[in-house]
Structures are given as C-alpha cells and as structure tokens.
Write a protein that binds this DNA or RNA. Structure first.
Lengths: 339, 339
DNA sequence: GTCGAAATCCAAAGCGGTTTGAAAGCCGTC
DNA sequence: GACGGCTTTCAAACCGCTTTGGATTTCGAC
C-alpha cells in the first residue's frame, strides 16, 4: 500500500493526499478527514526511505561511541540512551547507534554526513581535552553534548549535571559530620566530569582549611574492584580515611565490601557518599537508602537531551541552548559522625 | 557529490559508475579502477536513503526493547548490543534501537515492516510464554532470538548460552565441596533463561538426592538489594544455607555484602557461585577472580548473533540456524568446602 | 453576470540511487 | 567484408515520497 494506490482509491492526486496527511493547510477539512480515514482503514504508512530521500532529512539521530568510551560508561550510557530513545520515538525520530574502534570516530561522523545517516548526533563523554566538537562544527552536523566541553560552554549545545556543586555539597556534608580525612575515588582523569567533581571536592576541603592528601585521591575506571582495592589499601595504611567520597555506585559497592572485610561498619566506623545515577538495576532508594548519595537521574538527562537536540534540529535557535541539572543530596545509611 | 556528478566527471553513464562501484562483473577492470580512484579522490559516498529506496533494503537491523525488559536486562543488554554493533558496522549495517512502552511492541514491529525501517530484528529476552516470534513470522520479518523460545527451538534462528548445563555444573561443584543447603537466587520467573537455570540446579540436586528447599529459592529482578536482602534473611533463618548460587553478578555482590554484614567470611563460611556475563565494568578476572563463576561473554554472543542474523538476511538458508555457547566454570575465591 | 481573491486540487519535477533492456564496440571466423 | 558472440557502455524506467508552480473551482462583491 503506497501513496499512489491510496490516491487512486480516493480518486485524488498524490499531492493532495500527501498534504492532507502531513497537515498542510491547503486542503479542506472534509477531504482531510476522508483521507485520514481511508489511510487508517488501509493501514497506509508512508515509506520512510522514500520520505527521507524526498525531504533530505533522515529523521534519525546518531550516537557514535568509541569502544573505549562505551566500556567505561556502559551502564550509565545505556540508561541515558533509554531516556533519549523514549523521546525520539515519541517525536518520530529513529535512534541509530554506531560503536566504532577508537580513532574511527572521525570517519564515522564523516560518513553520517556524507550518506545522510542522521540529522544530528549526541556527543557522549566529553574529555578535558576534547576535539570532536570542532570536527562536528566543520562538518556542519548539529549535535548536543551530554556533559560540557571546557572552553566551548558558550559555543555548543549541552546538558549536564552540576558535578562540581554536587561533589562540593557531598564533601561539605562529610566535613560537617566531623570527617577530616576524606578519600576520593574518582573516574579517569581525562574525563571532563571527573575534573569537575574533583574541583568540587577540593573547593569544599579548602573552604574548611583541610589539607588535601594525594594518598587519598585516586582515579580509575569506575569498577567494583577499583573501589575494593583502593579502600582496602587506604584503610590498612598508616593514617586511614574516616570517609569516602566515591564517583560511582559500582565503585562504592566495592568500597563497602572492603570496609566490611576490614571488620569495620559502614556508616558507623567509616562513612561513604557516592553518586547515584539512578540506574534501574542498582536501586538505592528504599525507605532509607543504603548509600548516602548525590543523585541525578541520567535517564531524565537523556530525555531532556533528546528534546533539546530535536529542538535544535527543528527550530534552529540562533543561540546555543544548554541546561544544568542539579543533583539531590540524599541521606542514607552510609554516613555518620566521625569517630 | 552524487552519482550523476561523478559520472559526468568520468564521462561515463551513471549505470557504469554504479556497477563499477558495486562490483558487478560487466565492467572492465580498467574502468573499474578509474572509477574507484575518482570516487575516492572526490570523497563520493552513495546516499544511503537513495540506495535504500532503490534496493528496497534498509541495510539496518532493529532492536525493539519493551521498557520493562530493558530495565531488567540493562547492563547485559548493552554489552550484547556493543558486540552486535561492531559486527553490523563491519558489514555495512546500521543498528536502530527502539525503546517502546510495554504493549507497544507489536505496533513497533508492524511499523518496522510497513515503513521498511529494518531488514531484520533481534529478539531479546524470550519468555517462557513467548509470542513475539509468531507475530514476526506472520509479518515475514526475519529475526534471531538471543536465547531460546520454548517449543520453537527448531523453527527459529537463535543463539543461546547453555544455561542449564552451566548451572548444573555450578551446582555440582558446590555439591562436590560438600554443600547440601544451597540457596538459589534466580531472575524473574517468566524469563526463559531463568527456567533453564532452575532446571540445571534442580537436576544437580536431584542427582545427588538432595531435597529441594523452597525457602532457599527466590526469584526477582537481579538487583544488588535483592541479593543482600535475600541472603541476610536466609543466613539468619533457622537452617541457613552454606552456599549460594546466584544468577547475576550484581546480585552476588549484594549477597557478599550480606555475608560480611553477618560477620561471615565469603569462601570460607559461605560459598558463592555466580554467573559472570563478562561485563566490562564488572571485571571478575584477576589472578584469582573474586567470584567463582560460570562465565560466558555476552558481548561475544552479540557478535555471533549479528553474524548469524546477517547470514539469514543475505544467504536466506532454508533451515533455521542456531548456536549454543558453553559457559566456562571458573574457580575463584568465593567457594570452599562446606564447614 | 463578471471579476478577483481565496480555497482546492493537480501534473510533473525532483530526491539519488539501482536495474532493465538495448545499443555499441571489439574480436575472430568463414 | 559480413556475421555471430562477447564485452562494455548507455538511456531510461523505477523506487515512493515531497513540493513547486499552475490550473481549476468556489464564492462574495460589485
């Protein structure tokens, strides 16, 4: 069932039928209704390929993931995607995901443009030294950054969580509880969000005149063993920390494992605050959550991000658009006053 | 830069250029070389929309995820996708992912067919009472199941891990170590793989004449708290288990948390075996892995699945194709002889 | 009754490829 | 030198939709 057949059945031209279905004004309400009914009755749906070719728009949004990035952000990424995907579907966009070898990103983007695979792309996991945005600008491919690109905050569309403020507040909470030796397990140093979280932590400690101890600050991919190993080493060292600030819940789980294994009790002997991305398979939201945490739903971020990118594609606003989400600071069972 | 321009530059017809680039035999080697060079020089890449319209193939593969399924399988799903995505990219296919509300699946598939959005789809998370495959058959949309559909093993393409054997072996290992009270924390009961794992567990226990204790068997979404809560309750009950068989590493982490909190030592006082999907953010592969586990890389499964589905699309084999992957049983630190 | 604007509708030209059916070029053969 | 059989190339149709520019109809105003 295609437009032509449908038009013949209706004894109308393809033009009129097309216009009726696409909501153009130059068709009478009566005709429009007739067309719509017939289309429904015959189960007509316009062929997407044909429409794309004719309009020049692909009605899809691309996500290019270098493999290394994907591996680090896997669960978080998926949740973001899920949120964005919802919105895409509602708005009639498709989501195409390309997972490419590191270093193949550039050609992936070029191909998206050359072959008109997507109308816009989502840029994931911006680094401290980011370059992808300049490529995208030169390719004239619309994009939105999930996170922020240092130095390009005013020149790109982005949505981000206020990492700095969240971690500053979390650190302040620990300081308020009397903790002075606060370990900080953070993600890989070249990621922008990692730098911002570190800045928040440092600001808080500086505010209170607490000296930074490099021995208490570590960076790594945010795995469970990273948390367990680090915590174990730190807790058995000369001057152990009394609290941990942890960038990811998975790592925090590792930390709490180490704490138990050291014969200590979490929340009493040692405090832990983590960041909770509100991942569905890692719920931390009982009556009293296990972990005290900064929480910001990455899924919600995905939803907003998709809306913003689509807005960019359709309305083409002159000014860059951006949104900064604040994280909640949520009290759980993993924090208590310093011994 | 499109075909027409390229052909003009070469002083050839579009036909010849198209054929040269697509490897048709009726074009001389010399001409072909000339065309290829010019195409490369001018950075020509055929417009995908146009090609799709002309060929009727979309050169993309769909993944339709009902929201509930996505939430349960999130991390595993993402890893599978990553594997499949690699293969798609290599073979020139795009991956389009649709995340839809529960109950919208049917219309999502219909739309894929009506609008020619994808040439085939991957079917995720088959249930014990599965029906999607009959819909897909009637829509004549090629698909491959990740997992197996009970009763349709011989009528559908699928790739699966040998869940039953894996869990049977794991249970046997625990039995060999002298454990008799073996708790089993499994996924949601309506999933096919959950049923198979249960069958494996039950077979092993029956083999040794160990009676099943319903109090030791639980089903739930495989979250961390599910593991922690269940283990805590069981360990503090009248006749506590001495070992846990756990369907997911995330849940196993919860179990180990509960074990510690009960003042017990994992691997000594209580044994744990889990299934390890080899997720990148949950490494369990040090010199001696933390968890004794059955391991099967879901990413590898994704790679193979994509290859198989593409084979289906291209070669259209008459017989259904399938592949059963065996899991490794890997000894870690979490198992030891029953006290 | 005529005129002009507004409201409807239509034929045809793209969009950028693939593919069919036919023509042209080339070669050796009789 | 005409002919048959390959190889190589081409013009044109086609995929199914959107959209331009124009034609036709409607209708109130004069």
């Amino acid at each position: 069932m295609n437009l032509k057949e449908l038009a013949e059945r209706l004894k109308l031209s393809q033009t009129t039928v097309s216009r009726a279905l696409n909501g153009y004004p130059e068709v009478s309400a009566k005709t429009r209704r007739r067309v719509e009914e017939m289309a429904r009755a015959l189960g007509y749906a316009p062929n997407q390929q044909a429409r794309r070719l004719a309009t020049g728009r692909s009605m899809s949004i691309g996500h290019v993931l270098p493999r290394s990035l994907h591996e680090m952000l896997n669960p978080v990424f998926m949740e973001f995607i899920a949120g964005a995907g919802e919105t895409y579907a509602q708005r009639g966009y498709d989501m195409v995901i390309a997972i490419v070898d590191d270093g193949q990103e550039e050609s992936a983007y070029q191909e998206i443009v050359a072959r008109k695979k997507a109308d816009g792309v989502m840029l994931h996991g911006p680094r401290v030294a980011e370059t992808r945005h300049t490529l995208l600008k030169s390719l004239d491919l619309p994009f939105l950054v999930h996170g922020r690109i240092p130095g390009a905050e005013d020149a790109t569309d982005w949505i981000d969580m206020n990492n700095r403020r969240a971690f500053e507040r979390a650190a302040h909470l620990l300081l308020d509880l009397g903790h002075r030796r606060i370990a900080f397990l953070n993600g890989l140093e070249d990621m922008d969000f990692v730098a911002r979280r570190k800045a928040g932590y440092m600001t808080a400690l500086n505010d209170r005149g607490v000296e930074l101890d490099p021995a208490l600050m570590r960076n790594s991919a945010m795995t469970e063993p990273f948390g367990a190993l680090s915590a174990r080493e730190m807790l058995t060292a000369a001057r152990p920390p009394t609290a941990f600030l942890v960038s990811s819940m998975i790592t925090a789980i590792g930390v709490s494992r180490a704490i138990s294994e050291c014969g200590l009790r979490i929340g009493q002997d040692v405090s832990v605050i983590t960041h909770d991305d509100a991942l569905s398979f890692l719920p931390n939201s009982g009556e009293v959550p296990i972990f005290t945490c900064t929480r910001s739903s990455v899924r919600t971020a995905g939803i907003r991000a998709a809306e913003m990118l689509i807005k960019r594609l359709i309305d083409q606003p002159v000014e860059p658009i951006s949104e900064l989400l604040e994280a909640d600071l949520i009290l759980g069972q993993s924090t208590g006053p310093a011994g």
